[in-house]
């Protein structure tokens, strides 16, 4: 399995990576600091699961999600954001995300996510 962690904050990426590595060990994990880079990685590296922040420079998570779904409509995307408003949730789920969860994600929460998707 290949994973992609997308967040403009290095701290947020490292927090998520730490939780993810507890469960997936040495799996291949890519990182992106904005939506545009993430879309390129989805296109070129074909990850199986994407963790995607919403508020990012260059290209935000909403636009990136739409572009990712155009590339691979079966891609599993978990939106990870501090913004868990209903409208945000509806929008990302309607765009094809599997889950919309609140930051931060500890190892226990990560296990739940991986089991769900």
């Amino acid at each position: 399995m290949k994973y992609l962690v997308t967040d403009d904050s290095k701290l947020a990426r490292l927090t998520l990576l730490k939780s993810l590595k507890v469960h997936v060990g040495d799996a291949e994990i890519f990182q992106a600091e904005n939506g545009a880079i993430a879309v390129d990685i989805v296109k070129n590296e074909k990850p199986d699961i994407v963790f995607l922040d919403l508020t990012m420079p260059v290209m935000d998570g909403y636009e990136a999600l739409d572009k990712m779904m155009e590339i691979n409509k079966n891609l599993k995307v978990v939106v990870v954001s501090a913004d868990i408003q209903e409208k945000a949730r509806e929008r990302v789920i309607n765009s094809g995300a599997q889950l919309h969860v609140q930051k931060p994600i500890n190892a226990d929460k990560m296990l739940e996510i991986l089991e769900i998707i």
Binding site: S9, K10, L11, A12, T55, S81, A82, D83, I84, Q85, E86, Q102, K103, P104
Partner: peptide, 23 residues
């Protein structure tokens, strides 16, 4: 890295506070 951490702290504080207040 410190700037990045403070920005993320701001983002999480603002979003979680304001999101809940808006709800």
């Amino acid at each position: 890295d410190l700037d990045d951490a403070i920005l993320e702290l701001t983002n999480v504080l603002t979003s979680s506070l304001t999101t809940r207040l808006a709800q």
